[in-house]
Design a protein around this nucleic acid. Structure first.
Length: 495
RNA sequence: CGGGGCGUGGCCCAGCGGCUACGGCACCUGGUUUGGGACCAGGGCAUCGUGAGUUCGAGUCUCACCGCCCCGACCA
């Protein structure tokens, strides 16, 4: 049994903020639209970074770092990229401040105006590719596979902790290839890497698919996405990868000399996931008591809380606690050491510690008190279930490991069930209209015309999330205009 | 940028024209506690968002400004 949570939109939003606060993950900063990621929230980000970074490097991609500031002219080189990003960028216009006449305040020195304004990167295609054009000379330089861990800034009108902040942290991969097919394979590799990661590590079951023309990345040939479903039935784009074709190569003169001594433009990809993933993780698994973390991403997988009254009891109980911790720490799960913490703080009561780790989503909690030591046992709790389970000390390590696997599995199962039961095949506009309010993914036929997408967006506040990759061709008619269609698209309300 | 709501110790908030701005959480000191958010006693902490106005008197009424939150438009 798991506690239910409220699903009315307003309540769900509040619930989401409450979880973030209770788990001490992040808060609004004094800077408009920006968030402060607190140590525990950042620890989760570091876990994501570590695992993703390993997988990216395994694939042959190297990490590098490029400038934060982009000359304005760079952004204007690729026509559709300009349209997509120009309106939401922060601009640097001056390079110096000076004291005001009153001697107390500081003003922008009008003398220090930049000849060309600099844009704080909303994404790094342009700076990186202007550099790539110098790095790439021959077919032997390809493929070039570069990844950057960085912050980017998009001046969004409205922000939401983790899901949409003006500044966010991400990983952006950028590659250049000799052929279209190689680039296509790279973009699909990135997508499946993200899909594996969200499923196996974050216990989130996503739908991989292709974005429609109107929803694709500004400047891409086409865009792939993984779409996750939150517990309230709304969609969240959890990661994207783009086949950029030669669009940017032509804009930035990224050319190479081929085997036949002919000059050609490279084919490029870019792909990224951001701190938004943390938002998706929270909304996917948490309950009314706070955060629920899948063991593979949890900073602490097991927390042991000793219970005692006297110093004598404390010594015995903590010895037992540390003994379990030592044995657990020696174990390897998912190719990593098990992460165990013994909470020996003596200024917090037992109850306070229990609630703290509960709210922080620690998958397994173990309590050990004098009674347990006497019985040669302990109490073990799963974060995703109610109830305490008495476990013999001799098998505590074994059981804890079993719990971790079970929790990881069950969270994914629950998440997948939520997605599947709320995914509907819908064949009429009226049906879509009547069901859209309750949330979920709606697989409908769609003719491919932007006008039909627009109508749904304006009337039902739902957008096309993706054209799922795993589907057979199927004859049907567009749910909006009744023109013929060969495949289905997902409509949903989204974050 | 529109629509709604709100600014009072670090946090949550009471006050609804009148004397020294109420309380809880948190914090500090001492003691007792610890099997699901401890208790007692004492203590420290406030230019009531900013500015102007009305008034004998403003946290309270009026206006302007600033900031924050929620709902839209925009988006990963």
């Amino acid at each position: 049994m798991k506690k239910t949570l409220t699903t009315r939109a307003a309540d769900y939003n509040q619930w989401y903020l409450d979880v973030i606060e209770a788990a001490d993950l992040a808060e609004h900063s004094d800077v408009k639209g920006a968030m402060v990621i607190k140590p525990y929230g950042y620890a989760i980000w570091e876990r994501m970074q570590k695992i993703l970074d390993e997988r990216i490097k395994e694939h042959g991609v190297q990490n590098a770092y490029f400038p934060l500031l982009i000359p304005k002219s760079f952004l204007t080189k690729e026509a559709s990229h300009v349209e997509g990003f120009a309106k939401e960028c922060a601009v640097v216009t001056h390079y110096r401040l000076k004291m005001a006449l009153d001697g107390k305040s500081v003003i922008v020195d009008p003398e220090a105006k930049l000849e060309e304004e600099l844009i704080i990167r909303p994404t790094s295609e342009t700076v990186m590719y202007s550099t790539f054009s110098r790095w790439i000379k021959s077919w032997r330089d390809l493929p070039l596979q570069i990844n950057q861990w960085a912050n980017v800034m998009r001046w969004e009108m409205r922000t939401r902790l983790f899901l949409r902040t003006s500044e966010f942290l991400w990983q952006e991969g950028h590659t250049a290839h000799a052929t279209y097919d190689e680039a296509e394979a790279e973009a699909r590799w990135a997508l499946s890497m993200y899909e594996d990661f969200t499923r196996d590590v974050l216990a989130m079951s996503v739908v991989p698919g292709m974005k429609t023309e109107s929803e694709k990345f500004a400047g891409a040939d086409h865009t792939f996405t993984i779409e996750a479903m939150m517990q309230d039935g709304k969609a969240l784009q959890a990661g994207t990868s783009h086949n950029l074709g030669q669009n940017f190569a032509k804009a930035f003169e990224v050319k190479f000399l081929g085997k036949e001594n002919t000059e050609e433009y490279v084919y490029q990809t870019s792909w990224g996931v951001s701190t938004r993933m943390i938002g998706g993780l929270i909304m996917s698994h948490s309950d009314d008591d706070g955060l629920v973390l899948p063991p593979r991403i949890a900073p602490h997988q097991v927390v042991i809380i000793p219970i005692y009254k006297t110093d004598e009891e404390r010594v015995a109980v903590e010895a037992a606690a540390h003994s379990i911790a030592q044995s657990l720490k020696a174990e390897t799960m998912w190719e990593e050491k098990v992460r165990v913490h013994v909470d020996t703080r003596d200024n917090k009561s037992f109850g306070e510690k229990t609630y703290e780790w509960l709210k922080k989503g620690v998958p397994v909690r173990i309590e050990i008190g004098p009674r347990d030591v006497a019985n040669n046992s302990c109490m073990m709790m799963r974060r995703d279930r109610f109830g305490k389970n008495p476990i013999e000390l001799g098998v505590a390590v074994e059981e804890a490991l079993k719990y971790l696997i079970l929790i990881q599995h069950d969270l994914l199962e629950a998440n997948m069930q939520n997605r599947l039961t709320r995914t509907h095949h819908v064949d009429s506009y009226d049906e879509l209209k009547s069901k859209i309010e309750e949330g979920g993914f709606f697989l409908t036929h769609w003719c491919g015309d932007n006008a039909c997408e627009k109508k749904v967006k304006e009337e039902l506040k739902a957008t096309t999330r993706c054209i799922p990759l795993a589907q057979e061709n199927e004859e049907g008619t567009c749910v909006v205009c009744s023109k013929p269609s060969q495949r289905r698209v997902i409509f949903a309300r989204a974050y």
